[in-house]
């Protein structure tokens, strides 16, 4: 575990023995999101014209159409809106992870994103539970944001 300078944020180093996690296409408006994740920072797009956050990253604000889109640093804290535990998969990477949790996380910044909940017993997963981000390093100078149950006192 390589700790970053972001307090509760951690980087998980990928083992070399398992097939790689499927990676996102970064040739789009979200490139900075994945690069920032490698620095231990969770970014959320915010429109400077209408001051609203949105998801997913786009060149134009989906609320007002402005191209004045910037990023804000998210706290990395959120709430589970809904989740599922996946029990079967044909994917070479996810086959090694079964069973695993996929969730929709409502970030405190007001957007809902998909992620995995890791380092958390599956039987404690609940809608409404508080979670915090951590980052898994990936090839190409990016990292994948994941979530886990918030540690006590967070």
């Amino acid at each position: 575990m390589a700790h970053t300078d972001c307090g509760h944020l951690e980087q998980i180093l990928v083992s070399e023995n398992i097939p790689p996690r499927p990676l996102p296409d970064t040739r789009n408006a979200g490139e900075k999101f994945w690069i920032a994740a490698a620095e231990g920072v969770l970014l959320v797009p915010k429109c400077t014209a209408c001051s609203r956050t949105f998801w997913h990253p786009r060149p134009r604000c989906p609320h007002c159409g402005s191209t004045s889109v910037d990023w804000i640093k998210a706290t990395g804290n959120g709430t589970v809106h809904t989740f599922t535990v996946v029990r079967q998969s044909g994917d070479p990477y996810f086959k090694t992870k079964l069973p695993y949790a996929v969730a929709m996380i409502e970030l405190d910044e007001g957007v809902r994103i998909m992620s995995n909940i890791v380092d958390t017993p599956l039987e404690v997963l609940r809608i409404g539970m508080r979670v915090e981000v951590l980052f898994e390093a990936a090839p190409g100078g990016i990292a994948i944001p994941l979530f886990r149950a918030q540690s006590r006192g967070a």
Partner: peptide, 19 residues
């Protein structure tokens, strides 16, 4: 969607499961 690809949600099964 690139923002879903790393997370292994079964399409369309996991979406309906979350609903």
């Amino acid at each position: 969607l690139p923002y879903e690809r790393p997370y292994g949600a079964l399409f369309p099964i996991s979406g309906y499961a979350m609903v």
